[in-house]
Computed example of a mutant assay.
Amino acid sequence: MTAKLPDPGADERAHSDHLSALLREEIASHGPMPFSRFMERCLYAPGLGYYSAGKTKFGADGDFVTAPELGTLFARCVVRAVQPVLASLGPDADVLEIGGGSGAFAEAALRALDAAGHAPRRFMILEPSADLRERQRERLHANLPAGLAARVSWLDGPLETEWEGVIFANEVIDALPTTRITAREGEIYEEHVVLDGEGRFTRSDRPADALVRGAVRHVERDLGRDFADGYRTEILPQLPYWMQAVAGTLRRGAMVFVDYGYTRGEFYLPERTDGTLRAFYRHRAHNDVFHLPGLQDLTASVDFTALAEAGNNAGFGVAAYLSQARFLIAAGLQDVFEDDYLGLTDEAARFRLSQEVKKLTLPDQMGERFQVMMFARDIDPGVLPAEVMAADQGSRL
């Protein structure tokens, strides 16, 4: 499959070769590298990882398109869902976006919140990539009124003091470095990366440690069956700790996570024998995760049951779980679309707006592949969006 992928330029090739050399040195010095470590280095190594370097990631010129990149409809619907929560918390309520992407969501959300009279005291972006942080800063300061842009701040790490407000994360959990495991003869093995005789990256299984083994056994107990011999898949044993770190200090408020994934029963279907891990390079999905380290995105689908458990363990209740299409429609997509459509006179612009709705909601686009999970903590249930709560499919979890 990789033979059909576009060739990188000379500078890109040199960039990838540099990261590859560092990965080989680490493997040669320390032995087999857990795949989760390999993925973390490929995505986040300072100055070299996919999200840490200067390569365009989002939009037509990047490797994939996220919902906020399509236009403003997505962000404005999210705002309609969380605006009552922010209003109920008062003027000191804040918003925290985890992984700000290009800044498109922050820009559209801040405009919508300001127009509704509920601009947050602070709009914080937790962004580990210095490159993306600078792109976000440039975009927001160039496109937002100075007073609104001044509300934006960037965090180096999770907040350490208690606060109130809303957390939003779009396509974040799928980018957490995942652990790959295989079941064999009743034992659990963790996938590692080693070098073959020609110095190429290749896969090697090693007995899983207690943390990984315990996480797998928990999933098996929940499913009511053991994984079949040879079954290979992904798991995030660190997810509860990650959730506690990023959300543990949110004393009152709500969280909204949007990502592609499944309930646990769907994620670990017996026929899904090689998991969900894949790579994205210039809008092409493929399975060679060792191809051009640092130049392609690596991602795995989300076990939303595991996300619900992590939120519960951090002190939150699941308020709603539903497909992206159901969420957007319940949050008023029709009204937002009609207002924009009627305000346009250019037929080309109207067509683009209609295409945006289709991409966000059609089952074979983002509508059913992406799921939305909303959490709440210590707030009046009455301030949660009634239409979204009515569309909840949390019983599937």
Rank of each mutant, 00 (worst) to 15 (best):
E387Q: 05
D7T: 12
H192K: 03
E127T: 15
F257H: 14
G275R: 02
Q244G: 11
R352F: 07
S354C: 11
A215L: 03
L344N: 03
Y189V: 01
L159K: 06
I27A: 10
I125M: 08
G103D: 10
D274W: 01
L353R: 12
G275N: 02
T305H: 07
G103S: 12
R37W: 01
V383I: 10
V318N: 04
L86F: 07
D340I: 10
A390W: 04
L277S: 01
G294R: 11
E220H: 05
V152D: 15
H286I: 03
Q324W: 07
F105D: 10
A60C: 06
I188S: 00
V194W: 01
D196T: 05
L307F: 06
I379S: 02
V383D: 13
D205L: 02
M1K: 12
A149S: 04
A325V: 13
P68V: 12
L295P: 06
L132E: 09
D63Q: 14
G99K: 11
P145V: 00
L211Y: 15
A376E: 14
F35M: 07
L113T: 04
F64I: 10
M255L: 05
Q136H: 13
P84A: 04
R76K: 11
A45K: 13
I98M: 07
M255H: 03
G59E: 02
V152Y: 08
P240N: 05
D303G: 08
I188Q: 00
A14L: 13
I173E: 10
Q238E: 12
D196S: 02
F316A: 00
T233I: 00
V388E: 03
A285V: 02
D209G: 06
R213Q: 14
E387T: 05
S204L: 08
L110F: 06
L113G: 05
P363L: 09
Y321D: 02
R217D: 10
L23S: 06
V256T: 06
L86D: 07
Y321G: 01
V193I: 04
D196N: 04
P120V: 15
A45G: 13
Y44W: 14
R121A: 09
V383H: 09
V79C: 14
E127I: 13
D226V: 15
L86H: 08
G230Y: 07
G317E: 13
K359G: 04
V65W: 11
P240Y: 00
V372P: 12
L96I: 14
P270Q: 02
Q334I: 15
A390R: 07
A247T: 05
A130H: 02
I181P: 04
V95G: 07
S36R: 05
L342N: 15
L211R: 07
A308T: 01
G100T: 13
D380T: 08
F327P: 08
A104Y: 11
E234V: 10
A60Q: 10
L144N: 01
H286N: 00
L148I: 02
A106F: 05
T178P: 12
D339A: 13
G165K: 08
I188Y: 00
I329H: 01
A150V: 08
E40A: 09
Q296F: 00
G59H: 02
S395C: 07
G31W: 03
Y260L: 06
T305I: 12
A247H: 11
H218W: 14
Y321A: 01
V193H: 00
F38E: 05
D196C: 04
D131S: 08
R41I: 15
R282M: 06
L298A: 04
E138F: 15
